[in-house]
């Protein structure tokens, strides 16, 4: 018999999952959107059906949205602006030997 009684199902919406797609071998998985699904396996299938219909991917990750810890928009100044005037952190002061080709 089934695992749950009807009364045990209290949420009206399925949980949200973030979808990451690898478009081709060698590239990173990239965030492309989200789906609602009851569990990880269904989330994976929904991601396939919604986000790879036009051959966009060769691999999919789904992650529960509530597993992501995000920075706050109001912290933007203190988190990111201090890096703006520290150009010496960019490796632009090196001469690259011709033989090295494109970096």
């Amino acid at each position: 018999m089934p695992k749950h009684t009807t009364e045990q199902i209290t949420e009206k919406e399925w949980p949200l999952w973030e979808v990451f797609i690898r478009s081709k071998a060698g590239l990173d998985h990239k965030h492309c959107g989200s789906v609602h699904a009851s569990d990880a396996e269904i989330a994976l299938e929904s991601a396939r059906d919604v986000y790879t219909r036009r051959s966009e991917g060769i691999s999919i990750w789904v992650v529960p949205s509530n597993a992501i810890t995000a920075s706050k928009p109001e912290d933007k100044e203190s988190l990111f602006e201090p890096a703006d005037d520290k150009i010496y952190r960019h490796p632009t002061f090196y001469d690259i030997p011709k033989g090295a080709g494109k970096m």
Binding site: M1, P2, T6, Q8
Partner: peptide
């Protein structure tokens, strides 16, 4: 893929709630 999709759903309906079962 159709078989995978429909199988996964059938498992969830059958092994879901009393009503879905």
């Amino acid at each position: 893929y159709h078989l995978r999709f429909s199988s996964e759903w059938l498992i969830r309906l059958g092994d879901g709630t009393e009503e879905s079962h």
